[in-house]
Design a protein around this nucleic acid. Structure first.
Length: 605
DNA sequence: ATAGGGTTAG
């Protein structure tokens, strides 16, 4: 058929042949035809042809067709923003729909400032925004973290009476949390009459991004009790990460069960967060078996497994997974290497550590960051290579940070190297990030060397700097609830029975030859007071609580914010023996599995 | 008539 366009030749783009009865109906049908043509456009070539066709039909100046051309081109993946802009320019009097389209398209393109420009242009031209306008704008403000602007636009939406719209509210929750104002998010959430899954997801994610893990799990519980129980993978991933941080294994298992019941095939992200949850809640084997069963793994899955094995002290196995990763032709990145190096340091694999460090640079072209150097210092320090570690720090091409100096200082404490310990401490004391723990370590080292004058000097200095030790806490899960105990706790509702239990435990411990080790209590108090302080360490309180409230023989799992003191370590070993319990403690650094009076770290941590 | 919200892992 010569003279007809490609479009007309294809059945795909043909117009209805039969003339309809009334002119109005005919117009409608043609408009519908335009719509369906636009819906099928996959790339710019097709959009151009469709555009030409619409013009040819004389429909371009019919605002419905032109607007839909604009929308389809601006919002579909095959379209182009520039082309959409040129269409927008050709529309005589753009109305709400056209402006909304431009705003949404810019948000989709992540050109958020542009989206806002269109909004202000809209206001200037006297075009009234509607409930479709604001969610896109709030998303733009969320990305830009434009708190003030977001608030102002929120004010406009409120004046127009659009604040009761569910979609507007959901996007507001997100915007305020991304701008750091979670209180506003909560206020909006609480005032909502109707809440959708998206509302719950938004508020749960908001709490997670602020590290409010308790609240995160509480909201999740409320979600189902308020009847909103359509499990979504993304929401459950957030919930799983809360479980991971809190060591809430039972709750994590519930989430796992709900995933298995409701989702036919778990995606990589969910599987990875499940592995991370199990491993960081102490169930290394469960994590490993899930990892083995995974169909497709990505870089993150490997990272989670390697870091988990490292935390549990299984260095060789971690290195095996690392070589599996290479065989899987995945390129390890800097984070993978942090995990690999820390696996080596936890397991005392010095040579392998150095080999990996070289390989990282030469084979994978990764420039070591301060974290990698920190791992190497930790590796050497743990192995007692204190002088080498110091030389290494001195030769670093970047400025060592406090973490690096702190690893060196801890190594000096373990290996009783006061001379280098003083060097490390000097750097730490000069750092802007002052830490009471560093003073404590140095002072303990002086105490061990019986240099009491220096001990006193450090104490005075510490007081002068106004430093306080970060309060230690331990988390323990009993009856699907997380109980938090802080050091010297008097606030937990069951404190009385816990302290009674502590008293009883000490009796039995004494029979096993336990004597308190108060060397790490840095307080200007007498020996008896020090012993009292030791008794109140959060780990002991949490263990006592778990002994009372769990059945005989069941394992006890704790997560804590700081590293363990020597006394708690010895104490817990004996408790595992006396009460015949397996006790797993997640430290700041790694796991300790106490069983039959011994610990998996073999007393070196 | 056309359109919209939230969201994951180290």
């Amino acid at each position: 058929m010569p003279g007809t366009s490609v479009l007309q030749q294809t059945k795909f783009f043909s117009l209805p042949v039969d003339p309809p009865q009334s002119p109005e109906l005919s117009l409608r049908l043609k408009e519908q035809e335009c719509l369906s043509i636009l819906k099928r456009c996959k790339n710019m070539e097709e959009f151009r042809q469709a555009h030409a066709q619409i013009v040819k039909w004389g429909f371009f100046w019919n605002s419905f067709c032109a607007s839909n051309l604009l929308a389809a081109c601006a919002l579909s993946d095959g379209g182009s923003m520039d082309y959409a802009c040129s269409i927008f320019q050709q529309i005589d009097e753009p109305g709400t729909f056209e402006f909304n389209t431009m705003i949404r398209a810019h948000v989709k393109d992540m050109t958020f400032e542009e989206a806002l420009v269109f909004y202000y242009e809209m206001l200037e031209k006297g075009v009234e925004p509607d409930n479709f306008t604001y969610p896109a704008l709030f998303k733009a403000c969320a990305w830009l973290q434009a708190q003030e602007e977001g608030k102002q636009i929120h004010g406009h939406a409120f004046k127009l009476g659009l604040e009761s719209d569910l979609y507007v509210q959901n996007s507001l929750i997100n915007m305020y949390s991304k701008c750091g104002e979670i209180e506003h998010s909560c206020a909006i959430f609480e005032q909502m009459d109707e809440k959708s899954v998206a509302s719950w997801s938004a508020i749960i994610a908001a709490h997670a991004s602020f590290g409010k893990w308790d609240e995160c799990l509480m909201m999740f519980g409320n979600m189902s009790s308020e009847g909103c129980w359509r499990p979504e993978e993304s929401t459950l991933v957030t919930v799983l990460s809360a479980c991971t941080y809190l060591g809430a294994l039972d709750l994590g298992k519930c989430a796992h069960g709900s995933l298995l019941r409701n989702i036919s095939e778990l995606n990589v992200i969910v599987q990875t967060s499940l592995i991370d949850m199990y491993v960081k809640c102490g169930c290394l084997q469960k994590g490993l078996s899930l990892f083995r069963k995974m169909g497709k793994r990505n870089q993150m899955s490997y990272t989670v497994m390697i870091s988990g094995l490292a935390m549990h002290g299984h260095g060789e196995e971690a290195l095996r997974i690392y070589s599996e990763m290479l065989k899987d032709s995945l390129d390890p990145d800097d984070v993978v290497y942090v995990c690999v190096l820390s696996a080596c340091s936890h397991a005392g694999l010095v040579d392998e550590g150095f080999r990996c460090f070289d390989r990282m640079k030469s084979e994978h072209g990764i420039t070591p960051t301060v974290q990698h150097y920190g791992c190497m210092v930790e590796l050497m320090g743990k192995a007692g290579m204190i002088n080498e570690a110091l030389e290494f720090v001195k030769s670093m091409p970047i400025k060592p940070n406090d973490v690096v100096w702190r690893s060196l200082l801890s190594a000096c404490r373990v290996h009783c190297n006061l001379e280098i310990g003083e060097i490390a401490a000097k750097h730490l004391f000069q750092s802007r990030l002052q830490n009471a723990g560093d003073y404590v370590i140095l002072s303990n080292m002086y105490a061990r060397a019986q240099r009491w004058q220096e001990v006193a000097k450090i104490r005075v200095e510490m007081a002068r700097e106004g430093l306080h030790q970060v309060p230690g806490f331990s988390l323990v899960e009993v009856g699907r609830r997380i109980h938090k105990f802080v050091s010297q706790d008097t606030s937990h509702p069951q404190c009385v029975s816990v302290y009674e239990m502590i008293h009883q435990m000490e009796w039995q411990l004494k029979f096993e030859g336990y004597s308190p080790d108060s060397s790490q209590v840095l307080l200007d108090v007498d020996e008896e007071e020090k012993r009292q302080r030791l008794k109140g360490h959060s780990q002991k309180l949490a263990i006592a609580f778990a002994l009372i409230h769990t059945s005989q023989g069941s394992p006890i799992r704790l997560a804590r914010n700081l590293r363990m003191c020597n006394d708690c370590h010895t104490y817990t070993k004996l408790i595992s023996l006396i009460y015949e319990r397996e006790i797993t403690v997640r430290d700041r650094n790694r796991f300790h599995h106490f069983k039959d009076g011994t610990c998996s770290c073999r007393d070196y941590w």
